[in-house]
């Protein structure tokens, strides 16, 4: 049975202390000015009363990740065994086409490596059986990480216990694997996914790829055919002249 890693954020337990952000920075040595995770503080007035909600966020490791589709170099990929969206540093060209494709603005260019950086659910840590750095350090224990396909995991239990929501809209739903608990509060617009960029060029290539492949194949086979015919013709000719000589 394959795994399905998910992140749960209980916004009622988050206190915007930024521990997750610094822990991530220390763990992955992200350069100043960029972070792989964040906490959004949303404040508004409702019936004359101020309101504040807190949303810890990071790459949502979507099932239908637009960043993968957008990546022209094949560096962005989804790991089949657990569903996390990763980035192959050795392949990434740093072209930044995936940045506008992400509805959650989770991707950025690391100026030190000139490759794209983003949350990996701490893949090297979880591969060793450790919790992601943000989860381990979370002061309010607002973040919980685990395998949704394992019925005995904490995330499975919590998903069962409470009503969780995902940051999706009617327009943008790319199957995020990050869940939020808001105790029934509606999600504010500030944290909702952005209309992302689906490139026309991708659609063009959907035609160019098969047409090109068929064209190439047909061309090769056509001339292969012509060669065969020629060969047959020459053999006939040789036979004919031999017959003539015999006569």
């Amino acid at each position: 049975m394959t795994k399905k890693y998910v992140m749960l954020a209980d916004t009622t337990r988050c206190i915007n202390c930024k521990a997750c952000v610094v822990a991530c920075r220390a763990e992955w040595e992200t350069p100043m000015g960029h972070t792989r995770d964040w906490v959004k503080e949303v404040e508004w007035v409702q019936n004359d009363q101020p309101k504040v909600m807190l949303f810890p966020g990071r790459c949502q490791h979507c099932d239908d990740a637009p960043c993968i589709e957008a990546c022209p170099s094949g560096a962005a990929y989804k790991r089949e065994e657990d569903g996390i969206v990763l980035l192959d540093n050795g392949i990434c060209s740093g072209c930044e086409l995936c940045i506008p494709a992400c509805p959650y603005e989770a991707r950025w260019l690391n100026p030190e490596t000139n490759t794209i950086s983003k949350c990996t659910f701490c893949q090297p840590r979880i591969d060793e059986g450790l919790a992601p750095a943000c989860v381990q350090t979370c002061v309010g224990r607002a973040l919980v990480f685990g395998d949704k396909n394992d019925p005995n995991s904490e995330v499975s239990r919590l998903l069962e216990e409470k009503t969780w929501v995902k940051l999706t809209t009617d327009e943008v739903n790319v199957g995020p694997n990050h869940y939020y608990y808001t105790a029934g509060e509606a999600l504010p617009d500030e944290v909702m996914p952005k209309q992302y960029d689906r490139h026309l060029s991708g659609k063009v290539m959907e035609i160019v790829n098969p047409v090109g492949a068929i064209g190439l194949g047909a061309m090769l086979l056509t001339f292969l055919g012509a060669g065969v015919i020629k060969l047959v013709g020459r053999r006939n000719e040789v036979c004919a002249s031999e017959n003539k000589e015999e006569k």
Partner: peptide, 28 residues
């Protein structure tokens, strides 16, 4: 990607992408 800061202007990325389309089509 080496010279331009792609996040500055979406045009850079669009050119990149269409360049790739043109490059591959020409190869075909």
């Amino acid at each position: 990607p080496q010279v331009l800061n792609f996040s500055e202007n979406p045009l850079y990325g669009a050119i990149f992408r269409w360049s790739l389309v043109a490059h591959i089509s020409c190869v075909f």
